[in-house]
Design a protein around this nucleic acid. Sequence first.
DNA 1: AAGCAAGATGTTAGCGCTAACGAAGCCGAG
DNA 2: CTCGGCTTCGTTAGCGCTAACATCTTGCTT
Lengths: 381, 381
Amino acid sequence: MGRTDDSGRADAPEPESPEPAPPEPGSPEPAQAEPAPPDSAQAEPAGVPTMFDVARRAGVSHQTVSRVLNDLTGVAASTKLRVEQAIAELNYTPSPAARAMAKRRSGSIGLIQAGRPDYGPSSAALGFNEAARAAGFTVSQTSMRTLDADTLTQAVHRLALQRVEAIVLISGEREAVEVLRGIQAGLPLVAVASEDEPGTHRVSLDQYAGARLATEHLIGLGHREIRQVAGPSDSMDAAERRRGFADAIREHGLVLHDPIVGDWMPPSGHAAGELLRTDPEMTAVFVSNDQMSLGLLAAFRSAGLLVPEDVSVIGFDDIPEAAYFAPPLTTMRQDFDGLGRDIMATVLDVLRDEPTAPDRTARVPELVVRESTAPPRTAAP
Amino acid sequence: MGRTDDSGRADAPEPESPEPAPPEPGSPEPAQAEPAPPDSAQAEPAGVPTMFDVARRAGVSHQTVSRVLNDLTGVAASTKLRVEQAIAELNYTPSPAARAMAKRRSGSIGLIQAGRPDYGPSSAALGFNEAARAAGFTVSQTSMRTLDADTLTQAVHRLALQRVEAIVLISGEREAVEVLRGIQAGLPLVAVASEDEPGTHRVSLDQYAGARLATEHLIGLGHREIRQVAGPSDSMDAAERRRGFADAIREHGLVLHDPIVGDWMPPSGHAAGELLRTDPEMTAVFVSNDQMSLGLLAAFRSAGLLVPEDVSVIGFDDIPEAAYFAPPLTTMRQDFDGLGRDIMATVLDVLRDEPTAPDRTARVPELVVRESTAPPRTAAP
DNA sequence: AAGCAAGATGTTAGCGCTAACGAAGCCGAG
DNA sequence: CTCGGCTTCGTTAGCGCTAACATCTTGCTT
């Protein structure tokens, strides 16, 4: 399959080539309707330059160009320089498709983001994206609003037939992770999951510890009747936070009530607030995320309950808005960005077939005290 | 960790084949050292099945398989059936790299998302992502926190050498769009931009109309001394909202004050509130987005200013939290999802070399009246 | 019955790159 | 000097697919 080239080819290292300035690509002239065809001799080819074009210009073989490109040894310094210059002049960039084909590696990893575009997941995705780029990977993203099994399965398949080298799932739903695990796409799967999910590589922030910390803050303030607004039952993060809360409560010998279950969104927090405001004993509430806290705060406000005078409220996440709630919300700050980086680090480990560093799943949220928590009335009459 | 899976592999229909399940790709079997080489005849090849494997199994040429795959005419129904069955049995999927190479089209489009992961951009990205998928495109995403020229330029180049067919920029910064335009990547550029940017295909929501509507709502309520908290000066959306506000004010013969400029985030809204609360005339504020409104509300609250009794506040965007602010925020709802779809539609137009449908840049935000706006005291004493 | 247009398939080239090997040129050792 | 052993480079095959064409069947027309 002799590509037509040659023409002037071969040993023509002519440094004094008649055309000093290359046609300057960069703009593959999409409009340009084949205007310069009959130049038989050594004119630069029309389309995007290939490795052969570079080779000809540098007076070497395409293989040498490849060597320079892949930074392999065995290329004389002077030759390397010539090649690099030719590359620069032609503004050449290797075709990823061809490279993927020859190498049998796409160099891209698939990201599935399921659910609402919330602050946490979005930030984690951003961090992951930057980390992936730094590692030389391309990320092919598939977002979806819903996270039903069907859509998810399709997403994985789509990504799989794109030959991504691994799939990352950002979505705390237990079901999503399970669906993924069931699919067996035949390629590494890394999911954000705070519970242990056999068969899947997982990464997460330490939700359990965060919840304990939050609860202990409340207890330390003197609260004894603490209620809980939890996240949806199929969220692993919600479960972990619930567990952390429960353990802290029990360890301090307090009474553990059933949590009110919300869906992470403000309306459900509001509903929870409506329920809770009639509770005469309660002096503090641990809300599983900031958005629900906002709703809860609104409900308390309209019921005439003062925060933190009548009741303390602590959230989770520390979204950018939290500091401006009424009152400014005490909450647990999470390092989503770090999570994103951890995800990529795990992907790299898996791809290299190394065991995942265990300490990577341990970023503990940090308590940010603002004005929504205070000692209970009874403790400071 | 070569996922040992397969075992039960499911689907694999052919029960009589010597080796029922293909070795299951994805794991390029690094360990498997060529165990089955001498099978000259018709044994299934080791790696991922190719078009030739399908062809052999169906007893046709690979070209016929290609025809079936690409849904071309000229294939007998019976043959087509056989091929499809072989495809299913082998669990074959075409290699995108090979296809991209032969077709000289990557089938993917690049998405650059610059800036914080805010609700609006994230939602638009989600909508775009879904639309792209529906159109059969893959989206390669590059997110970044900052949007300086350097990072942006790099992002474009990275995408360009990935051979994406078009680049989409979601980020309202004027400078970002200009940088992009300056780069001349040689491929179509579609940006979210509410101002007219020569040389770039643009899509946007009708910020101007939205701002007018918001302002007119205030005026209609009887307000005469309306102040404005604008977005950053290099945001095109901010400029358009500012223009809409100004025009509405002028047309009603009211006095136009210089806006206070914020940066979209709650703290800047808070700072604006601090400034504004000393203004004795003011009875209403048009804040350019909901997050700044939150900060402003907090400042007014701590200053003892009642909203809406003392001063009305209207925001912009209608983020999910807005309904639970104190008080619930009147604001302009934007169809970010629709914007995302519009972006993809425009990309498609550009790729097909058709002029962009002009009415696509015209989604007008919708007024959502809640409790932060009311007639001024003087109008209803 | 011969002729011929479709219709249905197969063959042959690439697409642009990497992998594996092979061929020079240059060195000091024997 | 002559021969192995480097280093440096070139050649030859694919990777898995699509695009043109070439080829072989059919079914009808005349």
